[in-house]
Design a protein around this nucleic acid. Structure first.
Lengths: 210, 210
DNA sequence: TAGATTGTTAATCGATTAACAATC
DNA sequence: TAGATTGTTAATCGATTAACAATC
């Protein structure tokens, strides 16, 4: 397999979508698929699909195409979905709850081990099978449980302070729903941003263009 | 001003971030800024910033830089934030609530005029100042109120049927939080996707790379 | 074997960066 | 005027598409 370091973000960003489509095909009992047919279903070029897949070594067979189950499985491996990373969630509001539920229904990758909020009224409430703890207990919890990932569903100012605190506590990566730009201060730390506000502005632009 | 149709998505996707940073500078009383200084604050090249801004006509002044307030305002105009689009939200769960609150706190673009859910237990509840209605009333509501945009915070299968129904009811654009790929079936309809599941997989990949 | 389809190389296209003349 | 900085053109870099030999 090619060294993953060579693979550009442009390709990586397409992998989850491939993974979803292949999962769907697998569920529908499709055994094999050609790059051409997959391209039609996904709205990509067959060329791009072959380029993307070929980076991961011999996934296909000439004259046959790709085995759906194998491809789906390998794609999950490339994404690292077989790993289990201990994660904590900070911010138990609506967004935090939605995200917590998502992690549960999503196949792989993360185990949510703690939820924190600064609102006293939330502490003790259960989200799925996890109790919401008060943010004051964050330090102690992290020192004992050593979460690897933190999910930030808090406002920008809170996120800024939390990132500093959490990095000090050994957190290695962030799933960031705030508008605080973590990478500017910590360029080496893996961060995945979900900027809902930016998405809304982009929609506004697209509509204005009609 | 250049015809907006010429401007690529790569540029458009950066506009909300510019808009946010400029709003912050404005709030901090910064009057003027050069492309070089903005580039350092945002982690971009000065060249890219000048390229991006120059597409919109003479926003800067040689030897001076850019006026922060003017640039912020113009950026908002390009994004169409001065418009008001009537929007409905389908799906009153945690994600729907989070999104509804977002629309309220966000400066511009959308007026949320209705919220729908198929759960009887939710109907009648208030989210902000909007009552949750039962999904059975969607047709009648849309025929009377003519929403332009629909926000989908429902599972994929529900989203599929809803899009068909809503397009029939005159909805022109979608903010889509489901994994249903609207553009495959309706390539002409403006859609902005927020794929939380894909984002989580991408994070998983980034962590595995460390 | 003949037909299908990959993996890969080459060509094209688009986006980013560098350079600099224009000018405030 | 001298210094700073834009807007724009040219150069570079990267990503996508096309073509096709390899081969199942």
């Amino acid at each position: 397999m090619a060294n993953k370091d060579d693979i550009s973000m442009a390709v990586i960003k397409r992998l989850p979508r491939y993974y979803r489509f292949l999962g769907e095909l697998k569920k529908n009992g499709v055994v094999r698929i050609s790059s051409r047919e997959l391209s039609e279903r996904m709205g990509l070029t067959a060329s791009q699909i072959r380029q993307d897949f070929s980076r991961y070594g011999g996934l296909g067979h000439q004259g046959y195409g790709y085995n759906v189950e194998k491809l789906h499985h390998e794609m999950g491996e490339f994404l690292g979905l077989q790993n289990r990373h201990a994660a904590i969630l900070v911010g138990g509001g609506n967004l935090g709850r939605a995200v917590a539920n998502h992690i549960y229904s999503q196949a792989g990758g993360f185990d949510l081990i703690g939820i924190f909020d600064r609102k006293q009224s939330l502490t003790g409430q259960m989200i799925r099978d996890i109790p919401v703890r008060h943010i004051d207990g964050l330090d102690e919890f992290c020192r004992e449980q050593r979460p690897m990932v933190a999910i930030l569903c808090v406002p920008e100012d809170a996120a800024r302070d939390l990132v500093e605190q959490l990095i000090g506590l050994g957190v290695k990566a962030f799933w960031n729903f705030s508008s605080y730009d973590i990478s500017l201060d910590y360029p080496e730390v893996p961060v995945e941003n979900v900027h809902i506000g930016d998405s809304l502005m982009t929609l506004c632009y697209k509509i204005s263009q009609e």
